[in-house]
Computed example of a mutant assay.
Amino acid sequence: MPLVSTGELVSAAAADGRGVAAFNVITLEHAEAIAAGAESAGAPAILQISENAVRFHGGRLSAIAAATAATARTSTARLALHLDHVVSPDLLRAADGEGFSSVMFDASKLSYEKNVEATADAVRWGRERGIWVEAELGRVGGKEGESPLDAHAPGVRTDPAEAAAYVAATGVDALAVAVGSSHAMTERTATLDHPLITRLRTAVPVPLVLHGSSGVPDDEIRAAVAAGMVKINVGTALNTAFTAAVRGYLTANPHTVDPRKYLGPGREAMAGTVEAFLTLMRAAE
């Protein structure tokens, strides 16, 4: 099936009052697992490649982007391709022509004024190419290379009035907000600020994005979608499933040297995790 656009999937979900899940791709097995999980769930999904993943592949975007796009195009599920947490302007511009319909431009570490300036430039660039742009306001924290961030610390969460001004000044198509989740959580123990989500939904005229959803329990995700969250980002949960399956296989079969023997169970475990999150999105409608 041809790639669909992220904007199309997110807009449809927002109109229906439901969520759409976006899953991070690191290896080809991740892309295959996301496609398989989406097919099993009978649901659309977004495959996203982060700047950290591109760095893992030697800083070269083309190969992993082409493999991910090809996997999506050969799937029967409705899938979109998104470039996630882009800090480098060079990588932002590399998205054009690689199959990406959307980019998350991350200037959240800059001052508010510098964030607005850089993000507005990214949005203008995206508009000229039909590329949907997501940005972040507040600090979700937990990304590789960052010091630990308390998701409940004062000043970390997104202020609704500032968010409304930020969207008006930048023209972004979607906004990732800090409401109590954190990246790279391996246990699902996060507690979200649902009244804040409701206030942000009222204040902000574009779809809201929840980063760090791997650490958020099912009931919290359901409530977040009901309160106004639309794009639900999942990454670490796939890696947790993959690593546990690979570790289990190699523990039981310590003399195995053929990577297909253990990558297969890892891929299947990720596909099951994808299906579970997509089923949760349906239950949250």
Results as ranks from 00 to 15, higher is better:
residue 142 G to I: 08
residue 144 E to T: 07
residue 153 A to M: 06
residue 189 T to R: 09
residue 157 R to T: 09
residue 189 T to V: 08
residue 155 G to R: 06
residue 155 G to N: 04
residue 167 V to A: 05
residue 204 V to C: 13
residue 202 T to A: 15
residue 155 G to M: 08
residue 143 K to Y: 11
residue 169 A to D: 14
residue 144 E to N: 05
residue 135 A to Q: 12
residue 217 P to G: 12
residue 189 T to N: 04
residue 186 T to R: 15
residue 149 L to C: 05
residue 181 S to H: 07
residue 141 G to I: 06
residue 141 G to Y: 13
residue 134 E to M: 09
residue 208 L to N: 12
residue 216 V to Y: 00
residue 210 L to K: 14
residue 213 S to V: 03
residue 172 V to L: 11
residue 214 S to V: 05
residue 210 L to H: 04
residue 155 G to C: 05
residue 147 S to N: 14
residue 178 A to K: 13
residue 205 P to N: 15
residue 193 D to T: 02
residue 150 D to A: 00
residue 196 L to M: 12
residue 146 E to D: 15
residue 183 H to S: 01
residue 160 P to N: 03
residue 174 A to N: 02
residue 171 G to Y: 05
residue 168 A to T: 10
residue 209 V to E: 03
residue 190 A to N: 04
residue 209 V to D: 03
residue 208 L to V: 10
residue 166 Y to P: 04
residue 161 A to G: 04
residue 176 A to N: 01
residue 172 V to N: 05
residue 183 H to T: 00
residue 160 P to V: 01
residue 172 V to T: 03
residue 212 G to C: 06
residue 160 P to K: 05
residue 185 M to K: 04
residue 188 R to W: 00
residue 141 G to C: 09
residue 148 P to G: 12
residue 188 R to I: 00
residue 187 E to D: 14
residue 178 A to M: 13
residue 163 A to K: 07
residue 171 G to N: 03
residue 155 G to Y: 12
residue 197 I to F: 10
residue 168 A to S: 15
residue 178 A to G: 08
residue 188 R to A: 11
residue 148 P to V: 13
residue 142 G to A: 08
residue 183 H to A: 01
residue 137 L to D: 07
residue 134 E to W: 15
residue 209 V to W: 15
residue 153 A to Y: 09
residue 211 H to G: 08
residue 195 P to L: 13
residue 169 A to G: 05
residue 184 A to D: 10
residue 189 T to E: 08
residue 197 I to K: 11
residue 174 A to I: 01
residue 216 V to C: 04
residue 164 A to Q: 00
residue 147 S to A: 15
residue 203 A to I: 05
residue 184 A to C: 06
residue 139 R to L: 14
residue 169 A to Y: 07
residue 157 R to Q: 15
residue 192 L to M: 09
residue 140 V to W: 07
residue 194 H to S: 11
residue 163 A to M: 11
residue 168 A to Y: 06
residue 171 G to C: 01
residue 178 A to I: 10
residue 216 V to G: 03
residue 146 E to N: 10
residue 212 G to M: 09
residue 213 S to A: 15
residue 144 E to M: 09
residue 164 A to Y: 00
residue 154 P to I: 02
residue 190 A to S: 10
residue 136 E to M: 06
residue 167 V to Q: 05
residue 142 G to L: 12
residue 189 T to H: 01
residue 155 G to F: 12
residue 136 E to V: 02
residue 216 V to L: 11
